[in-house]
Amino acid sequence: MTERGRKALLLAPAGIWLLVMLALPLLVVFVFSFGERGAAGGYVPAFTLEQYANLPARWTAFKNTLILAPLGTIAALVIAYPLAYFLAVRCSPKWRTSLLILVIVPFWTSILIRSYAWIFILGGRGLPALLESIGIDDIRLINTPFAVLVGIVYGYLPLMVFPIFVSLDKLDKRLLEASADLGSTPWRTFRQVTLPLSVPGIATGCMLVFILLMGEFLIPAILGGGKVFFVGNALVDLFLQSRNWAYGSAVAMTLVVVMLVTVSIYMKFISRLGGQREDVSLM
């Protein structure tokens, strides 16, 4: 077999998978987005830009998503980084594996059930009751953007922890000694060596979380009490409630484009920031 043939064979499974599971559905969505809604819902073939012209009607959903997705990503990063740092640098190897498993364990349960648990924690009989007992009255947590943020951080934390952990774990610890040897204080060593060298992990984690957050609908629906509306929620409503497939497709296509643009700007920014040889990689 020729070299080219072997390469083709290696790529065939993934290629077919991508074609059937990604390209074709995307094509369907693309075509639908120029159609019209049937009288009883669904899709009627047509060629109209009406659905795209109607996009401003979902502007708030895009706005909410574009605010809360980066915010959630940053919040997850702020909490995940020290945790990953502890696990990779400070934690004794004896405990590391068990602690890593603890980070993954929540993934064994459905996000639906885990988010429901937060309803009780953030609900009136949970944290607010606890706060009341120490004299902080009338705190409403559930069904607020804050609750959604908590849910997001909780739900996506492992996705952020792992890439950062990996990049910190493979960081050559002698570099830290070298830095100390050259007169750098521990804090400056962190800023000048550890942090820049964990940029690939940070970039990967942020990208994973951000992309998934852009399509999130479950957490806002459950912890936002339906009052925090993401593009994902708009899509669920459009496809499952009002059955406006054409408009839903236009919104979905727009989301894809917004995501591509955001992610490519982000990649540019990161590669400039990091100046790394290793490009941003998915773990």
Binding site: A178, L197, G274
Partner: peptide, 11 residues
């Protein structure tokens, strides 16, 4: 110190 594998900062 000059380290065994140099420990130069790759970034």
């Amino acid at each position: 110190m000059v380290f065994q594998h140099y420990a130069l900062f790759p970034h």
